[in-house]
């Protein structure tokens, strides 16, 4: 078993607002191993960003961690002082934000922005830091880097700016890279380039990645494991094949069904809206939108049922007492394929 570098357990986060306590994250647990990529997927507002921000200590001022633990190696991050956080941020854990157009300081030279973390954390003198920044610019594929290092953000395109943001994140060779929808704001063709670049650099720098997206489509090529999040809770997690070909939670079915593939002509989006987090439901939060909902779903929270040693799902449908339901055709097709694969594996 590979080394576990991050362990999040029963994390609970509230936001204090005028309207009341927004219970944004409720009992979320997951872990991250060295060198792997974990994708967190879910609709807008499901709490993906809040979860990642808590790992780097960048929650909004009105947020309060109500319980749980975040362990980075053996360090309990929730006990960190601001000073501790500062020595971790940009150094051991780095973050890439969604919008490259606004992520860079408009009045600071690119070179300085890339060199800054190095000067801060490794106390590298400016000249050397700029030399490293130049290398990094080349590594993220910026041509003519010698000249461009003296330019300002507005002189770069969106894709180029995201490359610069990646360079900033990786210059201290962090152990964990948090990428919060790093390609959502970019053109499709550029998206693919950036994802390739990230995979390439991950191997070179040997970093683990938590990759956030609401688009399952980009997950397949990117992630080793996938966690599905909904309304502040995890509903299902497993290896990428298990989530794509053997999904168990009806919400995951819905996500897969709404993913454009060759086999589905009509894109199906999940009807309804997520629940109000001021007063979250006591059962399965997805129940109100779930065609396959059982009475149990509104009565009590389903536990995580083990599907395989790496695959768990929180749905009463996996309870031995549950009736058999027919999943959507596309899911059945995938299940069949999964069984084939498993059979092939056990034969060989």
């Amino acid at each position: 078993m590979s080394e576990r570098i991050l362990d999040v357990k029963n994390l609970k986060i509230d936001f204090h607002t005028y309207a009341g306590e927004v219970k944004a994250i409720r009992n979320v647990s997951f872990h991250l191993d060295k060198g792997e990529t974990l994708a967190i997927v879910g609709e807008s507002g499901s709490g993906k960003s809040v979860t990642t921000r808590s790992i780097i200590g960048l929650l909004a001022g009105n947020a309060e961690i109500m319980g749980g633990s975040i362990k980075f190696h053996d360090q309990e991050m929730l006990n960190n002082s601001e000073k501790d956080w500062q020595s971790i941020r940009g150094n051991k854990i780095a973050m890439i934000f969604q919008d490259p157009m606004t992520s860079l300081d408009p009045t600071m030279k690119i070179g300085q922005q890339i060199a800054e973390p190095l000067m801060k954390h490794k106390h590298v003198p400016k000249k050397e830091a700029w030399a490293r920044a130049l290398e990094m610019m080349k590594a993220v594929g910026i041509t003519n880097a010698e000249e461009r290092i003296n330019e300002y953000p507005h002189q770069f395109s969106g894709g180029m700016r995201q490359r610069i943001v990646i360079a900033i994140a990786l210059i201290c060779e962090p152990e964990i890279l948090l990428a919060d929808e790093p390609t959502t704001a970019l053109d499709v063709t550029i998206q693919a380039e950036i994802l390739d670049l990230m995979k390439d650099l991950q191997k070179r720098v040997k970093t683990s990645i938590i990759f956030i997206t609401h688009d399952l489509g980009v997950v397949a090529g990117m992630a080793d494991r996938v966690a599905v999040m909904y309304a502040g809770e995890l509903l299902e997690y497993g290896n990428v094949d298990e989530i794509f070909y053997n999904p168990q939670h009806p919400y995951t079915w819905g996500l897969i069904n709404s993913m454009p593939t060759l086999h589905i002509e009509k894109l199906e989006s999940i009807p309804g809206t997520p629940p109000d987090l001021l007063d979250p439901p006591k059962g399965d939060p997805f129940a109100p939108r779930n065609k396959y909902a059982l009475r149990a779903d509104v009565e009590a929270k389903p536990p995580f049922f083990k599907v395989s040693p790496t695959h768990y799902a929180s749905t009463w449908l996996l309870d031995p007492r549950a009736p058999h339901v027919e999943p959507p055709a596309e899911i059945k097709r995938r299940w069949a394929k999964y069984r084939e694969l498993q059979a092939a594996k056990s034969n060989s």
């Binding site: 960048l58 500062q86 973050m95 606004t102 992520s103 860079l104 973390p117 801060k120």
Partner: peptide
Amino acid sequence: TSDYIELATAKGLSLTQVIRKHALRNSMI
């Protein structure tokens, strides 16, 4: 409250450094 200040914080700069190196210049221009 801008994104680039958030990124500067995510780099590990202290509040004073963030203000001195990034916020002051941008808000004074």
